[in-house]
Simulated scan of single mutants.
Amino acid sequence: MKRKMAALVLGNAEYPAGGELENPVNDALDISEKLKSYDFEVILGTDCSKAAMEKKLKEFGDLLKTHDVGMFFFRRSWYAN
């Protein structure tokens, strides 16, 4: 029996108080594509606001109700002024 797998992948690089950093978004895009190649149903968010992140988390929670496996990946850069 094939398991239904879901993933929430978030990568935040853009911050109002500081510049934009590329690696978190690139990492999120890369891992999202890799997970899709393993038949994960992927919810991807990049540079999400708090409201957008909460919406993605709710969507992921709903998806987990019908899937056997769930994975959460969150990548952000540490930016210090």
Rank of each mutant, 00 (worst) to 15 (best):
M1L: 10
M1D: 11
K2R: 11
R3A: 14
R3W: 09
R3I: 07
K4T: 06
M5T: 11
A6L: 09
A6D: 10
A7F: 01
A7M: 01
L8W: 04
L8C: 04
V9I: 03
V9N: 02
L10S: 01
L10V: 09
G11K: 04
G11A: 05
G11N: 03
N12Y: 02
N12S: 03
N12E: 03
A13P: 08
Y15V: 04
Y15G: 03
P16W: 09
G19D: 05
G19F: 01
G19K: 03
G19S: 07
L21K: 03
L21H: 01
L21Q: 01
E22I: 09
E22R: 14
E22D: 13
N23A: 13
V25M: 05
N26K: 15
N26I: 12
N26C: 11
N26H: 14
A28H: 00
A28P: 05
A28R: 02
L29A: 11
L29H: 12
D30T: 15
I31C: 05
I31R: 02
I31S: 04
I31K: 05
S32H: 09
S32P: 11
E33M: 12
E33V: 09
K34T: 11
L35A: 00
L35T: 00
L35Q: 01
L35H: 04
L35M: 00
K36S: 10
K36T: 07
K36R: 15
S37M: 01
Y38D: 08
F40Q: 03
E41N: 12
V42H: 03
V42E: 00
I43C: 06
I43K: 09
L44A: 05
L44M: 08
G45S: 02
T46K: 10
D47A: 00
C48S: 07
S49I: 01
S49K: 02
S49Y: 03
K50M: 13
K50D: 12
A51R: 13
A52I: 05
A52G: 07
E54A: 15
E54H: 13
E54W: 11
K55T: 13
K55V: 09
K56E: 12
L57K: 14
E59S: 11
E59V: 06
E59L: 11
G61D: 02
G61N: 00
L63G: 04
L63D: 05
K65D: 13
K65N: 14
K65V: 10
T66W: 08
T66G: 07
H67K: 09
H67F: 06
D68I: 02
V69G: 06
V69D: 09
V69S: 07
G70R: 03
G70K: 01
M71K: 06
M71W: 08
F72R: 04
F72W: 08
F73Q: 02
F73L: 00
F74Y: 12
F74Q: 02
F74P: 06
R76Y: 13
S77Y: 08
S77Q: 11
W78C: 09
W78Y: 15
W78Q: 11
Y79F: 13
Y79Q: 15
A80Q: 14
A80F: 15
A80K: 14
N81Q: 13
N81R: 13
